[in-house]
Amino acid sequence: MTTGLPPIGVTPAALSGTRITFRYQGQTGLDQLSDVHTVMTETPAEFRASLLSIPLEDIGYEEIRLPAHRTVRSEADIQTISRDLVRIVHVIEGTVRITVRGKTMTATAGQIYAHHMDTPYVAECPQPVTCATLIVPTRLLRLLPGGLESLSRGVLDESSLTEVFASMMAGVRRASPDDNTPDSEHLSRALVDIARALLGAQQRATTYFGEEERSRRRIYDIIEREYADPMLSAVLIARRLSVPVRHVQRLFSGEPLSVSRLIRRRRVQAAQSELVATADPFEVIARRVGFGSDDAGYRAFRIVVGTPPNEFRRRQRV
């Protein structure tokens, strides 16, 4: 099936349960692709791209062909549309230079890299590129503590696992089963299993430098596990780590967000997911994700997202 409609979010086919190829042309095509990030090219009028999107239960496969371009996902993009997803990218043709958390890595044809969608990044492709991407909800990967942060540390080492993953991705491209069938369920589980093994091997191979970095990762892990606890704060985290609260605050003095803002953003991200997935009123959701009161939830949501919760829900459903 071929259509000129833009993708919605990151895995558009997942909304309709069908295998779809999208076509993009000119400035209109660039605008359509710039849904959750901004895509730029030196010659917008000549822009031509295609996106094959395949749903597989809770995950998605995308194969995109693009001319030379630059993609930016900023903090503002994340606040507008939060995506608790991991993208595992197999470069089929061309070169991708991606910068995440200040670290730049270069992936060439045949190589694989991964990153989390709720981390700002810049991807630059100096030549035409074709990439196959597996998009997996973070919860399915069950990463070890610090796993999300370790994703930005480089191209995955070539091994039998990377070869198997690339072969499976090629198989999906050639002959994917219909969504919501036993075959689709089996293939989805197999891909998640191999992705989990790939990222687990990458994480174990990563060397963490310095006690401060290890401490920051422990704090990230505490926030990820316990953001729904209304008592969670820099003070409580400091007690958990048996360090002064000033030490916890100092660890993030040079980071984009303080500990309190990290907790607030994680709760708002959880609230965004609940607003889309459920019909529960925001007052109930706010308490469930850790806000101490309805008013605190409303204030935090507007600060992080820029719109009230009900307006966000309406836009997402439209």
Rank of each mutant, 00 (worst) to 15 (best):
P230M: 02
R239H: 13
N180G: 08
L191C: 10
H186M: 10
P182C: 12
V248T: 04
R173A: 15
Y208N: 05
S160W: 06
S242K: 05
E158P: 02
P230E: 00
V243I: 12
I237D: 04
M231Y: 00
S260M: 07
R218A: 06
R174H: 11
A201H: 11
V276R: 13
N180H: 13
D193C: 15
R174S: 10
D178Y: 10
P182K: 11
E226N: 07
A228V: 10
S253N: 13
Q249M: 09
Y227N: 00
T181P: 02
L262K: 00
N180Y: 09
R196P: 14
A205L: 04
V259K: 07
D179N: 12
R218N: 02
L241D: 06
V164N: 05
Y227W: 08
D179I: 08
S273T: 15
M168W: 04
V155T: 09
G254Y: 01
P256W: 09
I263V: 14
F252Q: 02
H247G: 03
D229L: 10
V248S: 04
R217Y: 00
Q269L: 15
A205F: 04
P230Q: 06
A271C: 11
P177Y: 05
A271I: 09
L236H: 14
I263M: 06
R261P: 07
A205R: 10
S260H: 12
V248E: 06
G254S: 14
A234T: 06
R265N: 15
A277W: 06
I222S: 00
A195W: 01
E255M: 03
P177R: 09
R189S: 12
L232P: 07
Y208P: 03
R218T: 01
R204I: 12
D183P: 13
A201P: 08
S176P: 14
R246K: 14
T162D: 00
R246Q: 14
Y208M: 13
P244F: 09
A170Y: 04
L198N: 07
R189K: 12
L257N: 11
S167R: 15
R218C: 02
H247C: 03
Q272R: 13
S242P: 05
A238W: 05
V235K: 15
E211A: 14
D221H: 09
Q272E: 01
R196E: 12
I194A: 03
R246P: 04
R174I: 13
L191P: 07
V245T: 10
V235R: 14
E213K: 06
Q202N: 13
E163S: 15
L275N: 00
R196T: 15
F252P: 08
P230A: 02
L156Q: 12
S160Q: 00
M168S: 05
R266Y: 10
A170R: 13
I237G: 00
H247Y: 11
L232I: 13
R189N: 10
V245A: 08
S258T: 09
S184D: 02
A238G: 01
L187P: 04
D179M: 10
M231P: 03
R250I: 08
I219L: 03
A197I: 10
F252S: 04
A234H: 03
I223D: 01
L199S: 08
E158H: 13
L199T: 02
R261K: 15
A190G: 11
S233C: 02
A195C: 13
E158R: 13
S233V: 06
V164Q: 00
Q203S: 01
V235E: 00
I194T: 11
A228I: 07
L191R: 07
I223V: 11
